[in-house]
Design a protein around this nucleic acid. Structure first.
Lengths: 125, 125
DNA sequence: ATAGGTGCAAACAGTTTGCATGTAT
DNA sequence: ATACATGCAAACTGTTTGCACCTAT
């Protein structure tokens, strides 16, 4: 039902190569090195089907829009560098986060983004 | 330099009345009760100037876009109800969050959203 | 009177969809 | 051969901007 095309291979391997979240446009330009002329609509369609397949997961960075990353890495959060714009994965999660929920609320998940400067950008500041 | 208009009063008081974050469209329809025919562009312009003034702050809810709330409430986070769509403020912040930053990274802020069911929606489930 | 504010529509960015063509099966 | 996938352009949503008109000062 789903065909193995040059474009899909290129997109999947762009996410495998990058070990951090990519925006649709970043994914397109990375994947285009392997599949010239790749259209952005194909990226969106492929990303969506990989999402539904559980092969990718969605990463929403406040103020920066939607990124995607390889799924299956376990629960973790993200770091957005305010200097160079890159988004990184942070391992693990210290959740004292749920302690203060108001009465009657129940929780199904959470989302944490840390902002600052990455190692490359904070060096020499 | 900044004039006191019916529209601005209506928008500001919409945020004062709501004690939770509002999307631009929610703000428009709330404020329109006090200022009929209010245009969405005016909401965006007013919200932006209130932001710059420090009277509002921006709340980005992953997967749901941009909301705004009255500023000056101290550091806190948000809860997004997956059933009714409402966004709530949560008091305080349990930050063990920074413990795991990779070497060389430095932090300037963070953003936490909790997803689940609010008290109204989880009652009777 | 006049500068700043407003509503409308056009312009934009990001994302989705329709359609004719291309291609894996 | 055929059905799914692709690229392009049009459509959509959320947000911003230009402009003629309006209004607080």
């Amino acid at each position: 039902m789903t065909r193995d095309t040059r474009q899909k291979r290129a997109i999947r391997s762009a996410f495998e190569r990058a070990n951090r979240p990519l925006s649709p446009e970043q994914a397109r330009s990375e994947a285009a090195r392997e599949s010239a002329g790749l259209g952005i609509a194909t990226v969106y369609r492929t990303v969506r089907s990989l999402l539904e397949d559980g092969q990718l997961s969605l990463v929403d960075i406040p103020g920066r829009g939607t990124y995607y990353e390889l799924a299956g890495k376990g629960h973790h959060h993200h770091f957005a560098c305010e200097d160079c714009g890159a988004v990184f994965e942070l391992e693990g999660c210290n959740s004292g986060i749920y302690d203060r929920l108001p009465l009657g609320f129940c929780t199904r998940g959470h989302d944490v983004t840390i902002f600052g400067s990455c190692a490359g950008c904070s060096r020499g500041r």
